[in-house]
Design a protein around this nucleic acid. Structure first.
Ligand SMILES: [Mn+2]
Ligand SMILES: [Mn+2]
Ligand SMILES: [Mn+2]
Ligand SMILES: [Mn+2]
Lengths: 225, 225
DNA sequence: AATAAAAATTAGATATGTCTAAAATAAGTT
DNA sequence: AACTTATTTTAGACATATCTAATTTTTATT
């Protein structure tokens, strides 16, 4: 059994390896500093943890280069993601939480280790494919339903898209979207992108046009349609 | 914020202070050895923890005598009991767990700290007064609905009683009760108590008579009727 | 290529939680 | 009352998780 901290480190590695970098493709290995930032801890602490997780066979550590997950590590990371997103779904769908209020609580609940619990919860919720932020929920075998999405910030004037997913860690962003009436599934058209600051004028299907900063459009994943 | 271990120690103290001893009344203070046994740890480790909890103001420690909870400690202990029993109720009522399968999972879930979560869960479950083992669930103010109960082992031949609560920590007992068709609410009559081994012949209202060892009758709380 | 900056690791410190063994105190028994 | 046993505490050890400061290695820039 891993400790809560070990699990959080493993999950951070997994998340960073998923993330698409500035060059448009996912990183080959996750770096110590990025992991530390994500967990709000220090690089030296992360190094220690990576060595421990490597010794336990969850990841491969190439000093000064980075880490990648082993098959064993990948499996466990997906299980943690599964638990996290199922609990977020439970909190929103059943307990009436706002989508900006669930991440921190799920960050705790994901560490309750019981396969029976996870699978029963999944069934109870009707085996949802996506969590309240639009992120896919791995099934009990770790399989993920993928969507073809891209950042809204990469879209050009005239494109018609639908919001597919939003970063769940920044509750400020979620509240901003609430206030503008934007949510998962909202359809919109990009009117114009301003080169000066990267801001973007958009028009939601049912509503008036307004503009979004690049900070915001960068964190919105959209799909065609 | 307390750690999981600190919370478990506090809860153990609370539970021991509730427990009725051989003399028929609750203890004035909880002893180090009993706490250690309950948490499957060692007396010396418990002493350390008690000193820490005392320093933080959750309990009063009289060396070589024992500990009692402060008002602050009592409040927190009741909150932990509340969370534990609400989650047990959720697991049985909503996820279809057996009453013998929930204790260990709830032992983890009780440490998820979020008042909003606890109170929403309480509402979602319909503000239940008792958990699947018949134990009372403190409300958000810490108030407990009490039943007048006593151990079945103290009953005499001829008494008609109803099962009100069962120790939730021993899953073997719960499975034994399942196999005999005994559950919370089952009405039964005590036919005879055998002085030799303390075993007891009982007859459930809807079923044939059989006998129970003192080990079992000792762990059943019953009420009149 | 040499130098500067960034990232990662190591060394050493502190805090926590647990243990065993030894000493202190309390409770029980002849 | 003296002795024995049980309980509790203390002392000292070890493993974990974190940090700061110093060192090493890699990457970027002149
Ligand atoms: Mn989340
Ligand atoms: Mn977490
Ligand atoms: Mn329980
Ligand atoms: Mn617990």
């Amino acid at each position: 059994m891993l400790t809560r901290s070990e699990e959080d480190h493993l999950k951070a590695v997994h998340a960073l390896l998923q993330t698409i970098g500035a060059d448009g493709k996912a990183a080959k290995a996750a770096g110590t500093k990025d992991i530390a930032e994500r967990l709000r801890t220090k690089a030296s602490s992360v190094t220690d943890m990576l060595k421990k997780l490597a010794a336990k066979g969850y990841l491969k550590h190439e000093p000064y280069y980075g880490v990648k997950l082993t098959a064993k590590g990948e499996t466990l990371a997906l299980q943690l993601v599964r638990r996290h997103r199922l609990w977020e779904t439970f909190l929103v769908e059943r307990l009436g939480f706002g989508w900006d209020e669930v991440h921190e609580v799920a960050e705790q609940m994901e560490h309750v280790a019981s396969d029976k619990l996870t699978d029963r919860l999944d069934d109870y919720l009707g085996n949802p494919g996506f969590d309240p932020h639009g992120d896919p929920i791995p099934d009990r075998k770790g399989k993920i339903r993928t969507k073809r999405t891209q950042r809204l910030s990469l879209c050009k004037g005239g494109e018609a898209v639908r919001i597919a997913a939003v970063s769940d860690t920044t509750d400020g962003l979620l509240r901003l979207l609430d206030s503008k009436g934007l949510r998962i599934g909202t359809q919109l058209t990009v009117l114009e992108v301003h080169a000066f600051d990267g801001s973007m004028d958009i028009k939601p299907k049912n509503g008036a046009a307004f503009s979004l900063s690049k900070d915001v459009s960068h964190h919105l994943q959209v799909e065609r349609g």
